[in-house]
């Protein structure tokens, strides 16, 4: 053991570690989220909100698409990031009940990088771009809301009408949706 220590002393460079401290250290997950937040490019259609600014692991993202079928809607997603980030993906849910082929009535989102294709090299920006893409290009191949996916596949006009009425707080096939219009 003494030998190891003398190696450590040799390895020590003049500028390296300072003395110990009993104070809590910024966790690896916090450090990574801080980095990701510094690199976020939100554009004009997205804003973040931190209910407790000291807790950067829990926040909401508000998305207001300015084109596509969901234009003028306001959609809120909760982000819950665990201390296991980035080994585990963030948990993302849509707060409103919306009519969307890839989002179910409970707010679960079918986005590959939030589950099976998550890799630690991906960052929060990738997730946010992915969410944005879901509103520009809802896709019928990965349905979480089967009715909505069928509508989209069979009759794009009917799907468009359903999206508009659901966003206005109306109901589609007896299922009522939250009003999300600006």
């Amino acid at each position: 053991m003494l030998k190891i220590w003398s190696m450590k002393q040799q390895q020590q460079k003049s500028d390296a570690a300072s003395g110990q401290s009993k104070k809590k250290k910024v966790t690896a997950a916090q450090l990574r989220v801080q980095k990701d937040l510094s690199e976020l490019s939100l554009g004009t259609t997205m804003t973040t909100h931190f209910p407790n600014p000291d807790d950067i692991l829990n926040f909401t993202l508000t998305l207001t698409p300015d084109e596509g079928l969901y234009k003028s809607g306001i959609f809120t997603f909760t982000f819950a990031i665990s201390q296991n980030f980035p080994h585990e993906p963030p948990k993302v849910k849509c707060k409103e009940k919306i009519y969307h082929p890839n989002i179910d009535l409970e707010g679960n989102v079918c986005l590959n990088i939030l589950r099976e294709d998550w890799k630690p090299v991906l960052n929060l920006n990738a997730v946010i771009v992915g969410l944005q893409f879901l509103f520009l290009e809802p896709n019928a191949q990965d349905p979480l809301n089967k009715d909505a996916a069928n509508d989209l596949q069979q009759d794009r006009d009917r799907f468009r009408r359903n999206v508009r009425s659901a966003m206005g707080g109306g109901s589609v096939r007896g299922e009522s949706f939250d009003r999300v219009m600006k």
Binding site: H87, N102, N108, C110, R115, E116, W118, D142, P143, K146
Partner: peptide
């Protein structure tokens, strides 16, 4: 990584 199945496969 923990093997995960796409949510939509589970749902449909």
């Amino acid at each position: 990584p923990r093997a995960a199945v796409p949510l939509c496969t589970l749902a449909t």
